[in-house]
Design a protein around this nucleic acid. Structure first.
Length: 423
RNA sequence: GGAGAGUUGCCGGAGUGGUCGAACGGGGCGGUCUCGAAAACCGUUGUCCGCAAUUGCGGACCAAGGGUUCGAAUCCCUUACUCUCCGCCA
């Protein structure tokens, strides 16, 4: 949620910046500014009458205690008239505030000035590339065939037991999952992150806090009986730890890491994008989250990028970093860098991480603040990044490391898997 | 799932209709004292909104939401959560 003051004071800039996200904001911004004016005027009216009414109530109290019942009765009648007015004005104020809030929540976050214009992932800007492209033989297999060949992932069995997009990992496939999770967690802990194991379901307030609700309601699994949402990422529970919290400035930055399964309905996905491990309804991910001082959040974004790059380097995967264009940027993000690994047999780049700065957008929704040295309370900045999501890493590892003898496990991972080869 | 009790400020904990934003204790911050520290003593201590904008004024907030009343932390209703006992259970 954008800060009202910012909209009020920089109306034109807000409209221009949102245009980069292909969001036409002029109408709604005008409405917001006008609703805000109405709200303030109405509150002034109500508060004045309320103050008067409080004064009378105290007077009645005093007359009662001193036994002057007739005087009390007279003032009571006077006060009764005010009551109606207060009620009317309060209802009006609630209505205006509610509408204002609903409008405010419809506005996406402002993109950072460095975000390029564009409509889709085709317009994203490649900012960095590293690693050697795999040279595979003509008959190289895509990962879903390798998974089947070595009997390490069973998609059909998942379909039978649950549905499409819920695979079983088996034998060395299952161990590889565990190894990656532990490797990613250990790396994050080494970089100063505190490990959490979060709940896999969250309530509505948490879904709202990080911005999944109401925007992406249809993308989450919902347990109606208990009104709980399956988490699409650990970002949701981990960031919401700080909902309605005022931190101390010296506590910043807070660095948390969590492994969790993630659940996504992925309504509307189709085709080669969903083949094999490319897109699943349930997958595993290690997520890093930071709460940072507004003046330092972009340094932190760089630090998080460096962390993710380090992981891919250790896994010996060729990768590139992409700056998302306005059209591809999420609703809540100000600046996002995607990490993509090259999957040799599919011959395509697969997104394995998304590192974002949300500035104060999520913090404003969940009222996450910190008290500065000057005693003033300000919104903090929130950031998060996948470090990393497993399925596409596994896809790239399988495809890129396939040999006649089997699939080679990168050295950094061998102490975690306990084997060097999947055969 | 059944029965009962509870949810108050940074923490503990009073307060059952009338200046209660809230006693008292602890903690934090500032000061006195001291070479310094401790102790003691004094003062101070939340968040949000609005008006005026230099210190000022008004309103809201005692789990959340609604109701009764001139007036509610205090009474009523709904929801959430916590605790105790029983049941069930990894």
């Amino acid at each position: 949620m954008l800060e009202l003051q910012r909209i009020r004071e920089n109306k034109e800039e807000v409209i221009e910046r949102l245009a980069v996200k292909n969001f036409h904001a002029s109408g709604i911004v005008d409405e917001i500014v006008s609703l805000d004016q109405q709200r303030r005027a109405t509150q002034k009216l109500r508060d004045d009458i309320l103050a008067q009414s409080k004064k009378l109530a105290r007077e009645i109290g005093r007359y009662f205690t001193s036994g002057e019942k007739e005087k009390a009765e007279a003032v009571r009648r006077e006060s009764l008239a005010l009551k109606e007015q207060v009620k009317t004005l309060s209802d009006e104020l609630d209505k205006i505030s509610g509408t204002l809030h609903n409008k405010l929540v419809e506005l996406p976050n402002l993109p950072h000035p460095s975000v390029p214009r564009g409509n889709s992932d085709a317009d994203n800007e490649v900012v960095f590339t590293e690693g050697e492209m795999p040279v595979l033989p003509q008959n190289a297999l895509p990962h879903w065939e390798l998974a089947d060949k070595y009997k390490i992932i069973d998609f059909d069995l998942g379909s039978k037991v649950t549905g499409a997009g819920f695979p079983f990992y088996r034998g060395k496939g299952a161990r590889l999952q565990r190894a990656l999770i532990n490797f990613f967690l250990d790396e994050a802990i080494g970089a100063g992150y505190l490990e959490y194991q979060p709940p896999l379901m969250v309530n509505e307030a948490s879904g709202f806090g990080t911005g999944q609700l109401p925007d992406k309601e249809g993308q989450m699994y919902y347990i109606g009986l208990d009104k709980l949402y399956m988490i699409p990422t650990a970002e949701v529970p981990i960031t919401n730890i700080y909902r309605h919290v005022i931190l101390k400035e010296e506590d910043l930055p807070l660095k948390n890491v969590a492994y969790s399964s993630c659940f996504r309905r992925e309504a509307g996905s189709y085709g080669k994008d969903v083949r094999g491990l490319n897109r699943l309804h349930q997958f595993d991910k290690v997520e890093i989250v930071q709460i940072q001082h507004p003046g330092k959040s972009y340094e932190t974004l760089e630090e998080m990028k460096a962390h993710v790059a380090g992981l891919l380097r250790k896994l010996e995967l060729p990768f590139r970093i992409v700056r998302l264009c306005g059209g591809d940027l999420s609703f809540t993000s100000a600046l996002t860098f995607d990490f993509e690994v090259f999957s040799g047999a599919q011959k395509r780049w697969l997104e394995v991480s998304s590192v974002s700065n949300f500035e104060s957008y999520q913090a404003n929704r969940m009222k996450l603040r910190f008290k500065g040295a000057d005693g003033k309370t300000r919104l903090a900045h929130t950031l998060n990044g996948s470090a990393l999501a497993l399925p596409r890493i596994v896809a790239a590892l399988l495809e890129n490391n396939q040999t006649a003898e089997g699939i080679k496990i990168p050295e950094a991972l061998q102490s975690y898997t306990g084997f060097e080869l999947i055969d």
